[in-house]
């Protein structure tokens, strides 16, 4: 009798335990869903709220707006002026400039480093490279931002003589440093996971080591390397602290990389603290977050 009770009791505990674990397992799912629902909810008023539409619509964010009648229409980001304008072009260009510089900087270094580490490096060399990359990825982004703001900007200005100390190149290089570990790690994984049978076959056909690397391993690893680059690009777009500190935060439209820039993420970070809850400006900021999160999913 006693034994039976024990079993029953343990079965109940078992049941509750399993359900409890299952509930916890759904936290991640719930979090993702809540994040999307919440952000959509805050952004949606742009499409239907009349008060907000007086100030800003999707059309007004894309088409040129003038400050007042008779003035020349421009693309400008001036949410706090008397006649607020929310053109997304300056910010889009800023984001693009920073990410382009970051990728131009990080791809050769990240992919090159991965090729060296997986194809040429001796075991000892690899034991130096891997921890170095791990250390680089361990540097918090606010420290990189600080470094770019205080040290890198001065160095670059001394070398190139930029008019603006904080500019797209400065922010882009700092972003690039943050992106290198991602590109390196994923590319290296892709390069080392090419099946040995493939390279053995090429060696048996008389190819030398570099021929094997360049004609067999690299093409086979290319999709993986591309994935690493795309992930790195995503990180460069989403990264906030570095661009907030090192880009100058001026929403100007220009083709020059030595001008200050303002990115989407930095705008959200610097303006959201001051906007009025539920205002047009608030909705616009959230509207970008939607755009932002989706660019990541793809």
């Amino acid at each position: 009798m006693k034994k039976y009770n024990f079993k029953k009791q343990s079965r109940i505990i078992e049941f509750i335990g399993e359900k409890f674990i299952a509930i916890n397992a759904f936290v991640a799912l719930a979090a993702v869903l809540l994040i999307f629902i919440f952000i959509f909810k805050e952004a949606l008023p742009i499409f239907y709220d009349e008060f907000i539409q007086e100030e800003v619509t999707i059309e007004k964010m894309i088409v040129k707006q003038s400050f007042s009648e008779g003035r020349e229409a421009k693309f400008s980001w001036q949410p706090n002026s008397d006649n607020p304008r929310y053109s997304l072009l300056p910010l889009f260009i800023g984001t693009l400039k920073a990410s382009i510089v970051a990728m131009l900087f990080a791809i050769p270094l990240g992919v090159g480093g991965a090729i060296y580490s997986s194809q040429f490096a001796s075991k000892k060399m690899r034991e130096v490279i891997k921890p170095a990359i791990e250390m680089l990825s361990g540097i918090p982004s606010v420290v990189l931002g600080f470094f770019a703001l205080i040290v890198l900007a001065s160095i670059l200005q001394n070398i190139f003589g930029f008019t603006y100390r904080l500019n797209a190149i400065n922010a882009g290089i700092a972003l690039g440093i943050a992106v290198i570990p991602i590109i390196f790690t994923i590319s290296e994984d892709a390069l080392t996971s090419v099946p040995e049978s493939l390279s053995d076959a090429a060696l048996a056909l008389g190819a030398n080591k570099w021929q094997v690397s360049s004609t067999v391993i690299l093409p086979a690893a290319l999709p993986g390397i591309a994935a690493g680059i795309i992930l790195g690009f995503g990180r460069a777009i989403g990264e906030t602290m570095i661009v907030l500190m090192a880009s100058g935060n001026a929403a100007v439209i220009s083709a020059s990389f030595s001008d200050s820039i303002r990115t989407f993420s930095a705008t959200i970070a610097s303006e959201l603290a001051e906007v009025v809850f539920g205002s047009a400006h608030y909705s616009v900021l959230f509207f970008w977050v939607v755009y932002f999160s989706y660019s990541h999913l793809s």
């Binding site: 994040i35 906030t240 932002f292 990541h296």
Partner: peptide, 22 residues
């Protein structure tokens, strides 16, 4: 759940800040 975890890992950190606020 795995898709959710991967998504959560790829959401930029500033978005978490907005989510926390809201």
């Amino acid at each position: 759940i795995r898709i959710a975890i991967n998504n959560l890992a790829s959401i930029p950190s500033i978005v978490f800040g907005l989510f926390g606020l809201g």
